[in-house]
Write a protein that binds this DNA or RNA. Structure first.
Length: 218
DNA sequence: TATGCGGAGTAAGCGGATGA
DNA sequence: TCATCCGCTTACTCCGCATA
C-alpha cells in the first residue's frame, strides 16, 4: 500500500514536471537539472574515461531530453527515460573515445612535482638533522584517514573494471537504482545484470583486500 | 509457526573476441 | 593455436515478507 502511494506520487510528480517542461518552464528545468545532474555525471563516468567528457555527455543528454520531450509517452518514469537517453549518449561517446587516444593522455602521469613541499624539509646544509622535517606533518585523525582511503580505493577499483561491470556497480551501489531500472538503462537482462554486479563487487572486494594486506604492519 | 513466493546473490558453463 | 578475458544464460540457494 505504501509502495502504491509512493508510486502514485512519483507518477503525479513526473506529470507535473513534464507539463511544466512542455510549456517551457525554465525554473522546472533548472530544478530537474539540479536534482539529477550529480547522478547523471556518475553514470556517464561509467562509460567515458574522464570527468570532462562525462560533463559533455550529460549536457548532450539534456539537449536530447529537451528535443525528445514531445515524444515522451510516459511508458516509464521520467527519470528512467532521462537516464536511458544519457546511457545512449554515454555509450556512443565511450565507444568513440575508446578509438581515439588523446595526446594529453600520453605521459599523463605528471611526476615533475614533488609529493611534499620541499620547504617543509631542512636544507642539506642545515646544522642540525639536514633533510629532516622542518615542520613535521601533524597526524591525521585515523578514522577519517581510513574512511577517505577506503573510498579512494573503491573508486580506483571501480575505474579499473570493464565498462559493463563499472556501469552496473555505479548504478546499483552508488546511485542506488533498482535492478529493473539498471536493466532498462543499460539494455541488459536481469540475469546478466546480477552477474555483472556480482563480478564487479567481487573485484572491488578483492582490490580492497589486497590493499589491506599490503598495508598491514609487518 | 509453516509454507509459498519473489527478489537477489552466487556458481558453473558456454561462446566470442583478442592478444601472445 | 592457445590462453585469457568478458558477456551471457541457466540453475541453484538464501532471505525477507505475506498468508493460511
Amino acid at each position: 500500500m505504501v509502495e502504491q502511494t509512493a508510486l502514485a506520487r512519483t507518477i503525479s510528480d513526473d506529470e507535473r514536471v513534464l507539463a511544466a517542461l512542455r510549456v517551457g518552464d525554465e525554473q522546472a528545468f533548472l530544478v530537474l537539472v539540479q536534482r539529477l545532474h550529480p547522478s547523471m555525471l556518475h553514470v556517464a563516468l561509467a562509460f567515458v574515461p574522464s570527468r570532462a567528457v562525462a560533463e559533455e555527455v550529460v549536457q548532450e543528454a539534456w539537449l536530447g531530453v529537451l528535443k525528445g520531450l514531445a515524444q515522451f509517452e510516459g511508458r516509464s518514469s521520467l527519470r528512467r527515460w532521462i537516464f536511458g537517453i544519457l546511457s545512449n549518449c554515454a555509450r556512443t561517446r565511450g565507444f568513440r573515445e575508446a578509438r581515439s587516444v588523446p595526446l594529453s593522455s600520453l605521459g599523463a602521469e605528471d611526476d615533475s612535482e614533488p609529493a611534499v613541499d620541499p620547504s617543509r624539509f631542512r636544507p642539506p646544509d642545515h646544522s642540525h638533522w639536514p633533510g629532516h622535517w622542518s615542520s613535521p606533518p601533524t597526524p591525521w585523525p585515523e578514522e577519517q584517514l581510513l574512511r577517505r582511503e577506503a573510498v579512494e580505493a573503491v573508486e580506483r577499483a571501480i575505474q579499473d573494471l570493464p565498462p559493463g561491470q563499472r556501469a552496473v556497480i555505479t548504478l546499483r551501489d552508488i546511485q542506488g537504482c533498482e535492478s529493473a531500472e539498471v536493466c532498462d538503462v543499460l539494455g541488459i537482462s536481469e540475469g546478466n545484470q546480477r552477474v555483472l554486479l556480482h563480478r564487479a563487487r567481487s573485484k572491488v572486494r578483492a582490490h580492497l583486500e589486497r590493499r589491506l594486506q599490503a598495508e598491514k604492519p609487518r
